[in-house]
Design a binder for these strands. Structure first.
Lengths: 125, 125
DNA sequence: TTAGATAGTTTCCAATAGATACCAAGGAGA
DNA sequence: TCTCCTTGGTATCTATTGGAAACTATCTAA
């Protein structure tokens, strides 16, 4: 928490922070993290909630987030089996930032779409 | 700024916010936005600074960010030609959030790498 | 004349994303 | 018993994207 905080340069190749950013900067991961803020959820529940995500990508993204310590995976031997995903304490430290991003997007959507229209008119094709 | 802020559901398919998030949740875009906080920069300057980015991906990402109104592209008829990229006011409203993300990554790097090691030991192969 | 800078584009191959089908284990309904 | 439904995934296939390297054009300096 004290020293060595500036030992890395984000713009350096092979910077460890880059590796972290690489795994975070992903639309689905952000949506999943934001979704789990409300409490643990099961695989198919997440899949139905986040419309448009495929099973493969959901499974991959969940495993990636689990591997990075942001969420936990708990199996309950019910029938059919229940698998619950929940934010870890580490994951919870991230959700405020993630929410800030999604809320920025929501708030500035109109400005962005206006910019896109202006750009596409200025450079057609 | 007042009403209709909750008219969209981020988890809905075809939600406009999703389209925005899609363009933002990208490692290179985040690094570029963070880099431009310090003032305007030219193409090759950015390329040298953000080590490891290819010319193609840099050009693509810059054009994407320009199209979304987050940065401006100014051509100076010098020789050789100078092209300057700068944050727009809209882009500047985003950089605080982006910085929060990169700083979170920097701060929690060690915890993440520890989690990765633990995971890889628990599930080898 | 050759090398360097400017800001890209083009080409090619590998990696990823997404859609779809499939799997096993069991419960409920007919 | 047969079939469909659920659970949480994996397997397969194709389309899109990512990255490395080479190429473009114009001009300057050595």
């Amino acid at each position: 928490m004290t020293a060595m905080q500036q030992a890395y340069d984000v713009y350096e190749d092979r910077c460890p922070t880059r590796l972290v950013l690489d795994r975070l900067a992903d639309k689905w991961a952000l949506l999943i993290l934001d979704r789990l803020k409300g409490g643990p959820m099961r695989f198919n529940h997440i899949r139905r909630d986040i419309k448009g995500i495929s099973q493969k990508v959901l499974a991959q993204t969940l495993r990636k987030l689990e591997r990075n310590g942001l969420l936990s995976r708990t199996i309950f031997p019910t029938v059919p089996v229940t698998v619950e995903y929940a934010l870890t304490p580490l994951g919870r430290t991230l959700t405020d930032t993630v929410s800030a991003l999604t809320h920025w997007a929501e708030k500035n959507m109109d400005a962005i779409f206006a910019a896109q229209r202006a750009y596409d008119e200025a450079y057609p094709g």
